[in-house]
């Protein structure tokens, strides 16, 4: 890219989330300087005060809950050339999607006891359940290498392709002992890869934070879990921890 070429203006926006994924970006450290040769960050609440309403790429963090969030998101979509769903909350609804297992009223009472009348919330949705999404950066939190790949893809005009295969692929290539081999349970077989089997390579299990595979064999996975002594209630929890918004009947 020539030095004189206009930099791509990138703006970050957050909705219902913990902002942890935006913080991840600051860990890019000096590598961030390289990418700043090609992009200009014009809106990023976590690291700067200045704000701009002119941007090419809108990076959306968080899931969408209240009516005015929906309006705000649609407004951003109208202004942006490219819209990126950033992090599990934006991509799949994330842990916020657990609310789909309850009524809004029950959720308010549980989360804000004594203050429920002052709080406003609504049906939790992933970003693509409200507006068109051009690129996804999955994960809770996002994986920096993958975000870099998405950005580079946008800048080079060759969109990054999210893997559409199971975490098991990356896990096996790293020669991890399968958690099922150790009598533990794992959502790897139905969760999309791209994280490099981050959790399972570091002593954790897969929680399906990157979302369920488009072409998952749900019954096959249920059978595997059942063979390992998992109850129906646990199964429901396993599938809806990060994917409540995307489960059948919840769409």
């Amino acid at each position: 890219m020539s030095e004189t070429k206009k930099k791509v203006r990138v703006a970050f926006f957050d909705f219902a989330d913990c902002e942890g994924c935006q913080l991840q970006l600051t860990y890019l450290n000096t590598a961030l300087l390289d990418i700043l040769n090609s992009i200009e960050i014009v809106n990023f609440r976590e690291v700067m005060h200045e704000r701009s309403e002119e941007y090419d790429v809108a990076v959306i963090e968080g899931s969408i809950t209240r009516p005015h969030d929906e309006e705000r998101l649609k407004d951003i979509r109208a202004k942006a050339k490219i819209l990126v769903a950033y992090g599990a909350c934006a991509c799949t609804g994330g842990v916020n999607g657990i609310m789909r297992n309850h009524t809004v009223k029950a959720a308010l009472e549980t989360v804000y006891p004594g203050r429920k009348d002052k709080m406003e919330t609504g049906l939790i949705r992933a970003v693509d359940q409200v507006v068109k999404v051009d690129a996804y950066v999955h994960g809770c939190p996002i994986n920096l290498n993958e975000f870099a790949a998405v950005l580079k893809g946008l800048l080079l005009g060759a969109l990054y392709k999210v893997p559409d295969y199971a975490v098991c692929v990356e896990c096996k290539l790293k020669e991890n002992v399968c958690l099922y081999e150790k009598g533990q349970i794992c959502m790897g077989p139905v969760t999309r890869a791209g994280c490099g089997a981050w959790c399972t390579s570091n002593g954790n299990t897969c929680y399906s934070c990157r979302g369920l595979l488009e072409d998952m064999n749900k019954q096959g996975q249920l059978d595997i879990l059942e063979k390992h002594g998992v109850t129906v209630e646990m199964l429901k929890d396993k599938f809806s921890l990060y994917n409540g918004c995307k489960l059948e009947g919840n769409k």
Partner: peptide, 13 residues
């Protein structure tokens, strides 16, 4: 077909 979850383990190993 009903059992396979397409994890790719069989070919990777």
């Amino acid at each position: 077909k009903a059992r396979c979850v397409s994890c790719g383990n069989c070919t990777n190993v």
